Simulated scan of single mutants.
Amino acid sequence: MNFFEHQDRARQNTQQLIGLFSLSIAVMIMAIYIATLFLFRMAPRIWWHPGMFLYVAGITIVAIAIGSLYKISYLRWLFTRTIICCLFITFTGNSYFCKNVSYCTNNI
């Protein structure tokens, strides 16, 4: 398999993951919306309440966005810390400040 076939397969996998992520968000919004209707005892009488749906959808999307941004920033911090520790160990040979990054000494 050459580079371009790999790239096409990766693009297809990415599109599939984005589609599944969007579908899971939609299912979560609907599940939380229905649970909210039952919580406020509106479910048997009214199944479509646009104001409630927009409120639930907004809260759910904001919560998912905050969680995603937190995870992205944490992974960025972890990546930066790992690179700095690997460079520190490489140039000084001392791993005093980088005790949790033991794989750097094995791979360099």
Rank of each mutant, 00 (worst) to 15 (best):
M1P: 06
M1S: 08
E5M: 06
Q7G: 06
D8T: 04
D8I: 04
D8K: 08
R9E: 00
R11S: 03
Q12S: 08
N13V: 03
I18A: 01
L20M: 08
F21I: 08
S22G: 05
S22E: 00
S24L: 01
A26V: 03
M28P: 02
M30L: 13
M30P: 05
M30T: 11
A31D: 08
I32E: 01
I32K: 05
Y33Q: 06
A35Y: 05
A35T: 07
A35I: 05
T36H: 06
T36K: 05
F38E: 12
L39E: 07
L39C: 09
F40E: 09
M42A: 09
M42I: 11
A43Q: 09
W47E: 12
W48P: 04
H49L: 10
H49W: 13
H49S: 09
G51T: 07
M52I: 13
F53S: 01
V56D: 00
T60L: 00
I61P: 03
I61K: 03
V62L: 10
A63M: 05
A65Q: 04
A65L: 06
I66C: 04
G67C: 02
G67E: 04
L69H: 10
I72A: 14
I72L: 14
Y74I: 14
L75Q: 15
R81E: 11
T82H: 05
T82L: 05
I83E: 14
F88R: 14
I89E: 02
I89L: 03
T90F: 13
T90P: 09
G93Y: 01
Y96T: 15
F97Y: 08
C98P: 04
K99T: 11
N100D: 15
V101C: 06
C104I: 04
C104A: 00
C104H: 00
N107M: 14
